[in-house]
């Protein structure tokens, strides 16, 4: 039984119980919600709508913004740097997301076994996530140093010559990806662990009694029942990956050349270094569009997948 305040609809409950006389719709819910709404409208909804508007202006910090229709979006088509940023971001997403999902799921399965020391494993794998992104960037710049970095020195042991990592256009993005995976894999793992713990034990036992081997159990019990979690992790990881910025800003500033320039890095430079608010907001709007499309396809795919399970 849910308790409801004395509003128009729920007044009937109170009236039925004979506890309170009929009342006009109460303002109480609004008292509870108003403080948050003030912040929400002022700092989130309002700025979002304003950003949408600014994307259709030629505003450059000084002067009055003038409405220019789709001119900003037309200009994007002729902007090679934006093209690079877009390509780099997609490349980053395509490599980072599958790596993170597979690795974090494997770690979650591994550390979900009822064995000694798993708690330590979980804490250690999650630990990098509590370090701030810029510190992670500084730290990995040193790890990935071409001449004295830890990684190259160890790779030398295996006869691999010095990889230029962040100083070469062809390898810089891999350095950023490696850093990102180390930093965030524990977060995804924790989400997967939570999902694994929701799977009833009986199902595993039933599958085993039916003679399923480890792979069969994984394929026909774990994976389908984990679908809601996988969906969530995939969604969060894709959204976060499209917005990659901090590591790039600290480690390469988008370089060498435009090798690691990402969409958000480009939005930042356009809006806040060149003060092209209109154009920067238009690029941000494109990013928003990408996220909405991704979400749309994922929710659709997820619904379909769920039907398959049930």
């Amino acid at each position: 039984m849910r308790i409801l305040p004395r509003t128009a609809e729920s007044g009937s409950y109170a009236a039925l119980a004979g506890l309170a006389p009929k009342r006009r719709p109460s303002l109480t819910p609004y008292y509870f919600i108003l403080p948050y709404l003030v912040f929400f409208v002022l700092f989130r909804l309002g700025p979002s709508l304003a950003g949408l508007g600014i994307a259709f202006t030629n505003w450059q910090a000084v002067g009055t913004p003038r409405f220019v229709g789709f001119a900003n979006f037309e200009a994007m088509a002729r902007d090679p740097r934006l093209g690079d940023a877009f390509q780099n971001t997609v490349f980053f997403v395509l490599l980072t997301v599958p790596t993170l999902i597979v690795l974090s799921l494997a770690l979650a399965l591994f550390l979900n076994q009822p064995r000694r020391g798993r708690a330590v494993g979980r804490v250690v794998v999650f630990m990098p996530y509590v370090i701030m992104s810029t510190v992670v960037g500084v730290l990995w710049t040193w790890i990935l140093d071409k001449d004295f970095g830890l990684l190259n020195v160890y790779l030398n042991f295996f006869g691999i010559a010095n990889v230029p990592w962040l100083v070469s256009e062809s390898t810089a993005m891999y350095g950023i990806i490696l850093t990102t995976v180390w930093w965030t894999v524990g977060y995804d793992m924790v989400l997967f662990l939570a999902g694994l713990q929701d799977i009833p034990h009986e199902l595993y036992e039933a599958a085993r009694i039916d003679g399923a081997r480890a792979w069969g159990v994984f394929r026909f019990v774990t994976l389908p029942l984990l679908a809601p979690t996988t969906f969530l992790v995939l969604m969060l990881t894709i959204i976060n990956s499209f917005q990659v910025f901090d590591q790039v800003y600290v480690m390469t500033s988008g370089g060498p050349g435009t090798a690691t320039l990402t969409l958000v890095q480009y939005i930042y430079t356009t809006s806040f270094q060149f003060q092209k608010f209109g154009y920067g907001s238009a690029v941000a709007l494109i990013l928003f569009g990408i996220l909405v499309i991704v979400a749309f396809f994922q929710i659709r795919g997820y619904r379909r997948g769920l039907k398959g399970v049930e």
């Binding site: 700025p47 950003g51 917005q243 809006s271 920067g280 941000a284 990013l287 928003f288 909405v292």
Partner: peptide
């Protein structure tokens, strides 16, 4: 409706809001 509006903002990247927020 209100809850839908609040939730929908999860998908709006902060990069859209920063310019207006900065000006505010």
């Amino acid at each position: 409706l209100l809850f839908m509006i609040v939730l929908s903002m999860l998908f709006v990247p902060i990069q859209i809001t920063v310019v207006p927020l900065f000006i505010l």
